[in-house]
Amino acid sequence: MSDPAPLTTDHPGQAASATPPAPGRSRRLSDRGLAVAFISPALLLLLAMSVFPLLWALYLSFTDYSATRGGPAHFIWFENYTAILTSAQVHLRALTTLIYVFGAVTLQTVLGFAIAYLISRRTHGRGLLTTLFLVPMMLSPVVVGLFWRFMLDAQFGVINSMLGSLGLGQVEWLTRQRTALISLIVVDTWQWTPFIMLIALAGLTAVPKYLYEAASIDRASEWFRFRTITLPLVWPLLLIAVLFRAIEAFRLFDLVYILTSGGPGVSTETLSFHVYKVAFLGFNTGTASAYGILMVLIVIVLTQLYLRYLNKLKED
């Protein structure tokens, strides 16, 4: 009769260590060593590609270093930060970015939730509809920018052609101050509404059906059910989607570059686009690093405040 195998163990991994090591495995390589060996490639990659560049940019942000001029980097401490925070040019770009983020994310949230709500009420073809709505999100922003640029062209674009056939006049979508920013918001909304829709749809399908059944027994109206059941349960999930989108929109570069190049003038230049110009037109690497670090700090601080609000909402 053989010995009975242990039923439980304090450390699941120890059960394996009772068995003889596989042939060829070094006796000195413990489980922990093995774990370190496995995670070290990813860790090294993370350090080399993310942590080091961030620390290096932080160091450069306190200097007057220029990547093309070369020469030693002189410490100027917080002078880059002071110049950025007091620059009227930066304030202008910050305002443009704020209007853009607010406009785009609000529109995407309303539309995304509305589409998700309508899809969730369908019983047939829901999967197909969801897949179709997700297509814009899967495209490269550069491709999206290029074909919208053609569509919005005042002379040859299909949008103005359609407006013309309806008897409406030509609109200068990309070359007027107001319409250029609106065009950017519309194109971003076209591409990223599906993201909000997807997350809202996940929230909507997770709402327990018995709540609606109870409400219909009480003869609650559609609006009452939406206001007291659907929205409160989906709201926290929707807020997380809004957070992701707001961070993405804050970093907007590609659509601006392709659609308007920041124009007319600098009226659609976002903060990211301005950082690009500072970094690559004059190769002011120190200033651009400080600019980038400040943008990261703003995102971190706002995200922390937002997450606290989310936690508070959860506790309530």
């Binding site: 007057d64 002189h74 002071t82 110049a83 002011n284 200033t287």
Partner: peptide
Amino acid sequence: LDSGSRKGGGGL
């Protein structure tokens, strides 16, 4: 053109 002697915020 005049920013040669300026220390911080070059390029803004």
